[in-house]
Design a protein around this nucleic acid. Structure first.
Lengths: 155, 155
DNA sequence: AAGAAATACTTCAAGCTTAAAATTTCATGC
DNA sequence: GCATGAAATTTTAAGCTTGAAGTATTTCTT
């Protein structure tokens, strides 16, 4: 533990400012997306996230894998999947040979619904990030990638 | 509405990728901060945010102003302030001449508690954003500032 | 084969969050 | 003065989120 120098203190403050700004922008964009999803599709961001993960793995995921993929608690996923299942967008499928686990996957109507939502979603993000050109996007992406927090590589 | 060109489509995808990465990093950092606050101070991020806003305006804020400042619903602020008040960290003060509104401000013990938390918080952020030097921080900050989403200037 | 440990999932309590409805108080027009 | 609408806040219903406790089921140990 080295003594805080004037320089390291200034850097610390700079990082704090950056964090607060990142947080503000992220929340703003999230709020906009949430409202769009609600108004246009009567849905929510968590539902969208779950469906997106299941769309990537069309054959489905175990609850376990889903919660790791989304980095949320497993109890959380249970509730979201429950509600999606009520609406017929996903289904739980027994796994042969292990009666503890279940696989969740999009139903065909869930798959259809997601493709429509995903296209709209990309358009909204595109509008919300207006002002970021390809070079900027690439640059910020690189910087974020250097953060210890970005353990983004998924198995 | 112009027809989507190959170039604009690529940019759209690039922005989507950037957004997903921003979201992931932000959530990761938030999760880390939330856990720290819980373990070290038995507190939460929303409580910290409210206290931070009240620390900035030491004489207090109306519920209204607080919810605008934090960009959350007013019903939301009610609950958080209720719980902070139960713990003696903030207090509601009647506003003379308007019996509808109340001013919320930190108690002196709330103020003390916040200064301790704020220092720890800055340290955590500093560690979490390790790898971002002053130049990077400034650069990303500039880019974020150009987003329409960053309507950050507070009155 | 019996018991112990690990795994997969759900349930639970508490808190956060929103949008919408309800309440109280203030301001304005007539 | 009084009605009507605006403003500040709280309440409510529904959903999200976590960490911890609880339930089965499987696997490991001996």
């Amino acid at each position: 533990m080295s003594a805080p120098t004037a320089k390291s203190d200034a850097l610390s403050k700079e990082r704090l400012r950056l964090w607060l700004r990142m947080l503000r922008v992220t929340r703003q964009v999230e709020a906009a997306l949430r409202e769009k999803l609600r108004l246009e599709f009567d849905s929510t961001l968590p539902r969208f996230d779950v469906m997106a993960a299941l769309y990537r793995d069309r054959e489905g995921l175990k609850m376990n894998e889903l919660s790791k993929r989304l980095r949320v608690s497993n109890g959380n996923v249970t509730g979201i999947v429950d509600r999606l299942a009520e609406d017929g967008l996903v289904e739980r499928i027994a796994i042969e040979g292990d009666r503890r686990a279940t696989r969740v996957r999009l139903t065909s109507s869930g798959c259809d619904a997601f493709t429509v939502m995903a296209e709209a979603h990309e358009g909204w993000v595109n509008e919300l990030l207006d002002g970021v050109d390809a070079e900027d996007a690439h640059h910020i992406g690189e910087l974020l990638h250097r953060l210890p927090a970005d353990t983004g590589a998924r198995p």
